[in-house]
């Protein structure tokens, strides 16, 4: 649409179009005054319509093109905030699609005398608004995905508690399936705690891990190596017989790592590393008297 009349039409009737758009929006139930102030909505409409006009004047109707950057930014921002505010996809899309009606009305009254032109202009306008609508939905979904991803991350952090067993001894009971993303976060939060708690020994307890494949074993090994680089010893405990078998079958070399079958055994090793021991009270008292 190289010589479209649309930008010119928008320029001449901007205020009127905005008023009509606002009306269409409330008719479509897309205003949601509980979530958003009317003046904020009006400002968004004015911003968007203005930049659509500028984009049309500058660079045709390819909304992925250079001239449409501002419009894309605006729509992305609008969809993102709406996704966060809890607008439904329909309400978000209606925001853009509601612009159709006022535009069509305008076109109709402008080109009433020329039906061929009217059809042509209506068609190009509808494709344009459709594209903008689809872009909005796409950004909306992206924003939602982003929210989901962040929640997943938060959940991951919650699902891997680092516990302090004694001064200088930390334990990380791992429960459930370990994948790369989770191991990554586990490793980071564990090593961060190692620094803040100035830890001598860390126990990775995998009693609650159902299966260990090559990748998981390598991840564990990487955590142990990273801890060693920082100056802390790592013990892996809770290795069940079938997991020991898989580890050997997979050919993963854990010879450089201290492994214990139970958390209790690992704790004993950790205590002896710290030059500590657990004794029965009676024995201790007898020892003190002797």
């Amino acid at each position: 649409m190289p010589d479209s009349r649309l930008p010119d039409l928008i320029a001449r009737h901007e205020a009127d179009l905005l008023a009509q758009w606002a009306k269409a929006l409330s008719a479509a139930g897309a205003t949601r005054e509980d979530l958003m102030k009317p003046e904020e909505l009006r400002a968004q409409c004015a911003d968007l319509l203005g930049s659509v006009r500028q984009a049309l004047q500058r660079g045709g109707n390819d909304i992925t093109g250079q001239g449409w950057e501002k419009v894309r930014e605006l729509l992305t921002e609008i969809s993102r905030t709406r996704a966060q505010q809890g607008f439904t996809p329909t309400a978000t899309a209606s925001f853009v699609f509601s612009l159709k009606e006022p535009l069509f009305q305008r076109l109709r009254s402008e080109h009433a005398a020329n039906p061929a032109l009217l059809v042509e202009e209506t068609w190009s306008t509808t494709t344009l608004v459709d594209k903008l609508g689809l872009f909005t939905i796409e950004s909306y979904i992206k924003a939602r995905e982003d929210i989901i991803r962040r929640q997943q991350e938060a959940m991951l952090e919650l699902s891997t508690p680092v516990v302090k067993l004694w001064d200088g001894i930390l334990a990380l009971p791992l429960i459930g399936t370990l994948d790369s993303a989770r191991t990554q976060i586990v490793m980071e939060s564990l090593l961060q705690r190692v620094v803040t708690e100035s830890t001598d020994v860390v126990i990775l307890d995998i009693t609650g891990v159902p299966t260990v494949d090559t990748l998981v074993a390598q991840h564990l090994l990487k955590t142990v190596t990273a801890a060693r680089l920082m100056g802390t010893d790592c013990i892996i405990s809770g290795i069940r017989p079938q997991i020991a078998q898989t580890i050997v079958h997979l050919g993963v070399d854990l010879t450089s790592v201290i492994t214990k079958s139970s958390l209790a055994d690992a704790f004993k090793v950790a205590l002896s590393r710290r030059d500590l021991m657990v004794v029965k009270r009676k024995a201790a008292a007898a020892g003190a008297q002797a």
């Binding site: 980071e188 190692v194 190596t225 990273a226 680089l229």
Partner: peptide
């Protein structure tokens, strides 16, 4: 002494233990 966690993780990934 004092290697930062991020540095340690990166070194391991790099293949330098």
């Amino acid at each position: 002494t004092g290697m930062q966690p991020a540095v340690a993780i990166t070194l391991v990934e790099l293949g330098l233990s």
